[in-house]
Amino acid sequence: MHRFSKHLLKSSFVPFLPGAILIILLFSLDYVQLQLVEKFLLFAAFIIVPLVIVLLKYDDKNTSQRMIYTAIKRFHFPAALLALASVMSSTMWGWQGIALPGALSLGWLVLTLLLGVYGIMTIIVHKGKIAEWAIGAGLVYFFIGGLWFTLYQYQWTVFQATPATHALSSIHFHFSSAIVPIFIGMLGRIMTKRSWYPWIVVVDIIGPILIAIGMIVSKPLEYIGVALFACNIVIYTTYLLTYLKRNPLYKRASVFLVLSCLAFYTVIVISMFYPLLKRRFALTILDFIPVYGALHAFGFVLCGLVGWVYMASSMDARRGKLAYENR
């Protein structure tokens, strides 16, 4: 079982290593003069999405689903490179006045479209499994994030929203909107049935839409969406921590999942003390954005995805061992 588990983990993490190296260079080299929002978008393209792909399941008997999954795996890295070229061409190479950055971004839009199609197929195939609905909805939200990214790269104004708003909306859908439903779907795969779980999934699907609409037309609507979404994450993290305490078998997964939960709670604490810190140290919201972004992207999202990959690999290894012993 140990050897089988190691093989699963190696096959899970190796594909995203080239992207990880690129992201480290983008965040560390002074030569790369990208905006922070663009760096996080590329972080999502090269790190977050391939880890999500590892968590996807498909039915071997479903030819269409298997073909879409294969296309996603093969096209992901070229699409991420096109996203990188799109951002570099508009920010560093002085081509922002022409359509080339937008045209290059279409590669990433196609990849997110494939993810969205796969998400819809997941919902259709698993009609009675609410956890798979959550994962499918998260994949659809990646496509919406891809749309906002393309609008940002074309520098178009839509619904009186500026390109800067498009970039923030793309970040929102690549991280929170897509990832939280996937996390809650992964939790649904391992938890016992709870009467409240379907309501969590419903709120998880509606919340991002409220936030996105609110960002453009109504601040109160945005606040309602954020409050609902935050409450959902509190329920998810609380139940997950309880589950991990009762099931100490998944040690590596537990380390990363606990770190993910702690990162979320740290964001909450900093938000609560923000007014006091602002007055005492003469800080502005711009000083806190990198902190919030790092805690959310590297803490909650990245650690959470790594933890769920470990969890899925461990559970697959256990099922493989049981199948071998029952032959």
Rank of each mutant, 00 (worst) to 15 (best):
K6L: 15
V32A: 11
Q33M: 07
F46E: 01
F46L: 08
V54P: 00
S64W: 12
F77T: 03
S86M: 04
S89A: 15
S89H: 00
S90V: 06
T91G: 11
W95S: 09
P101W: 04
L104N: 02
L113W: 11
L113G: 14
G119P: 08
M121N: 13
M121P: 02
I124G: 00
V125I: 09
V125T: 14
G128W: 04
A131S: 15
A131G: 05
F142P: 03
L147H: 08
L151E: 12
Y152E: 14
W156P: 11
A161K: 07
A164I: 10
S169H: 10
S170K: 05
F175Q: 00
S177R: 01
P181E: 02
P181N: 08
F183Y: 05
G188T: 04
I190R: 04
M191P: 04
M191K: 14
M191Q: 10
T192R: 15
W196D: 11
Y197E: 06
W199P: 06
V202F: 15
V202K: 10
V203H: 05
V203N: 09
I205R: 06
I206L: 09
I206P: 02
G207A: 12
I209A: 05
L210H: 00
L210P: 00
I213V: 08
S218D: 10
E222Y: 10
A230F: 09
C231R: 12
L240N: 14
R246C: 14
P248T: 07
Y250E: 09
Y250P: 06
R252C: 08
A253R: 02
S254I: 05
L257S: 01
L257K: 03
L257M: 10
S260V: 08
L262W: 12
T266G: 15
Y274D: 04
K278P: 08
T284V: 09
D287M: 01
F288P: 01
P290S: 04
G293Q: 00
A294G: 10
A294K: 11
L302V: 08
W308F: 15
W308V: 08
V309N: 07
V309W: 05
A312Y: 08
A312N: 11
R318S: 04
A323S: 15
A323E: 06
